[in-house]
């Protein structure tokens, strides 16, 4: 019991002890306690196979995807303070985000982050394939991952419309016109011409899947609002749920894959 440092003094206060219920993680007991007792860290197992922490094996692409998703959530919420999803304001608000706001790079972080997330998700999947990690018992989690990949692309795609510039609406016009060509469900797709009784057209541009996506016959203000809601609320919620399932199953299927 030599001289006590200020750190030791802080560690002994009631406030510190009420937050951290264990000593510093420098022995086995406390290392277990810090991971098991923290709501964020308890996603992890307390101990794990060495290959599961090696960057050479995991590339950390799954972790980075999740990190970028969180970064996008934070920057996205910040952007929502200034952005109004109407044809009249949307474009000007995007300019205001650059010109009238201190540190006007929030939109840049959000946009580049979106691109980065697509890349990291692809590379994560690439790694999982190359190590054969989709094999039993992880088949189901691979499927969840594929759905998450699709949702990542949809998130990015719905966000692409929001700046409401030429780049945005024409990219979405091209993309959403593919929905028009859905067999049987789109008015420009195969099968729609057959679903016709006399003069009554069953699948028309007013009731097909593209109309549901755009809330109109072309990319207009209702589409902007619809994409905004999909982008900011609906898809992130679904992604959040699926990420929870994905992480849970990584643990339940035996952690990060390793040779059997």
């Amino acid at each position: 019991m030599s001289k006590k440092g200020i750190a030791d003094y802080v560690r002994e206060t009631q406030v510190w002890k009420s937050i951290f219920r264990h000593g510093p993680p420098n022995n086995a007991r406390n290392r277990a306690a810090v991971v098991a007792g923290n709501v964020f860290l308890h996603l992890h197992p307390i101990k794990l196979k060495k290959s599961g922490v090696q960057l050479g094996y995991t590339w950390c692409m799954g972790g980075l995807s999740f990190f970028v998703f969180l970064a996008l959530t934070v920057t996205g919420v910040l952007l929502m303070f200034y952005y109004r999803p109407t044809a009249e304001y949307a474009f000007n608000d995007i300019i205001a985000l650059r010109e009238h706001v201190p540190l006007g790079i929030m939109r840049e972080i959000h946009r580049w982050g979106a691109h980065l997330m697509v890349i990291t998700v692809w590379l994560h999947m690439f790694r999982v394939f190359m190590t054969g990690s989709y094999k039993p018992p992880r088949e189901f989690n691979w499927g969840v991952g594929v759905i998450l990949l699709v949702l990542t692309l949809l998130l990015s795609f719905t966000g692409y419309l929001l700046p409401w510039d030429q780049l945005a609406i024409w990219a979405i016009a091209v993309g959403s016109n593919m929905a028009k060509a859905t067999p049987f469900l789109g008015h420009g797709g195969p099968g729609a011409a057959l679903a016709q009784i006399g003069d009554f057209v069953m699948v028309s541009d007013k009731n097909d899947v593209r109309f549901q996506l755009l809330a109109g016959r072309f990319v207009g203000e209702p589409a902007l609002l619809r994409f905004y809601i999909l982008h900011c609320v609906f898809i992130p919620l679904v992604v959040g749920v699926l990420i929870a399932i994905h992480f849970w199953r990584v643990r339940k299927d035996g952690g990060i894959s390793a040779p059997l």
Binding site: P25, V35, H44, L48, G52, Q54, A258
Partner: peptide, 16 residues
Amino acid sequence: ENREKVWCWPNLVYTE
């Protein structure tokens, strides 16, 4: 040596 188990803290947490 790679099948060995290691502590999550600090190995994984610091990497993250």
